[in-house]
Design a protein around this nucleic acid. Structure first.
Lengths: 231, 231
DNA sequence: TGTTTAAATTGATATACATCAACTTTTTTA
DNA sequence: TAAAAAAGTTGATGTATATCAATTTAAACA
């Protein structure tokens, strides 16, 4: 029986995602051979909504914003993509086009894996399929939450939620707020840039947060959570 | 080698969903033995947002509306669940609670299948897993479309989209509009009932549709599509 | 290092839509 | 079949938030 080579183990470790732990030596080989490594510079688009998607991306290193666009100039930020996460999983097995865009907010190191390879592994390895399904399931729950947020919350609640979300990432990436513009923040909350600025100032006046240039320090997380819940 | 019994074949046919075609005799047995059949009356809730979900539902016969609720009295209709479709797939493998509600709009015949049984089959049968993943993928694409609709379209476009969506179902279920109230329609469009009424009247005046009591006949689908696209 | 470009800020104005209220019609139920 | 409840309809009013315009500050660039 085949066993994993040291090389393969390193590879799997680098991927740092639970689902890859279930792969057999042959399957690891398949992923390794059908992947392409790509570097993206800050500001580059990893995916563009509506373009052809024959592959899934896997973020090895770096941060990106996933967002949806209107025909016009508006966009809405859905999440920050972190290392160990997939990009493009959501649409690759039905629509053949990406249903969202994503843009690097730091330099990124990414794998592209052909969807045929992924499909092949799912067919032969049920455990891998199940762990992917768990990811789909999580994403689904997330999307429902986003729909609720967009439908039922207004400015204050949305902004609070956006700030709490980003603040959650701060321990791991302390300069996260410095990377984001006011427009980025506004797009996370789904409001206009001007409204975002006004809300931030007003939250600062109420001692709920502190604005140091572009950095933001949440002072009263409890109150912010309260605002978030109230809507 | 085991083969499918006549009984099992009937069962599979009744399920009428591509993913079940891939099951082995043992797996069919597992689904059959771990399922519960339930009848819902028009108006009953099949799922309630936030409640514990240890099972997946499979619609055998009947129609239901899937919707998300706010804490208050508002709801937004996501889709009409038709025979052959799953309910609760989206959250069952991550959150253990339903992330949406659903209500029968006709009497419904439904299977409940324990998620442990589904998980077991996915683990052992990659083809089944892959076909489920295709469903997840479709649902995902749908949810992204909904997010875009909610974010970027206004009244007219949303109403047009809702009407086109329901009109698509009309060939199969000719009385679909008669089943739905103005509030249901409004909740599909994500607008107030009053606005929905006014929009319908205005669309009638423009000869885009015809209102016969509760029934709606789309006269100018092209123009409606136009309105839908314009937003 | 000065110059251009982009981002942030602020108050004034505009608007799409919800909410409210009052009424009519339809459906349910007793 | 009458009475009550629910659904549908219409116009008047209110409001959250976008848009606009004008200015300041910061970042990029040559």
């Amino acid at each position: 029986m085949k066993t994993l080579q040291k090389d393969d183990i390193n590879f799997i470790c680098e991927l740092n995602a639970p689902c890859f732990q279930a792969l057999s030596p042959d399957e690891v080989q398949l992923v390794k051979s059908s992947r392409t490594q790509v570097q993206f510079r800050k500001g580059d688009n990893l995916t563009k909504q509506g373009t052809f998607a024959s592959y899934v991306m896997f973020m090895v290193d770096g941060l990106a914003i996933q967002y949806v666009e209107s025909d016009l100039t508006k966009s809405y930020n859905l999440r920050i993509i972190q290392p160990g996460e997939f990009i493009g999983l959501s649409s690759v097995f039905s629509a053949n086009t990406f249903s969202y865009s994503s843009v690097a907010i730091t330099d990124c190191h990414v794998f592209l894996v052909e969807k045929t390879a992924i499909a092949q592994i799912i067919s032969s390895n049920g455990i891998f399929g199940l762990s992917l399904i768990k990811r789909y399931s999580e994403q689904n729950v997330n999307l429902y939450d986003i729909i609720r947020k967009v439908l039922y919350k207004q400015m204050n609640g949305r902004m609070a939620e956006a700030l709490l979300y980003i603040n959650n990432i701060k321990p791991k990436y302390p300069d996260i707020f410095q990377i984001l513009t006011r427009k980025d923040l506004a797009d996370f909350a789904g409001i206009s840039t001007e409204s975002a600025v006004k809300l931030l100032k007003s939250l600062e006046k109420d001692h709920i947060l502190e604005l140091n240039g572009k950095d933001i320090n949440i002072l009263d997380e409890l109150k912010l959570t309260e605002i978030c819940k109230r809507g």
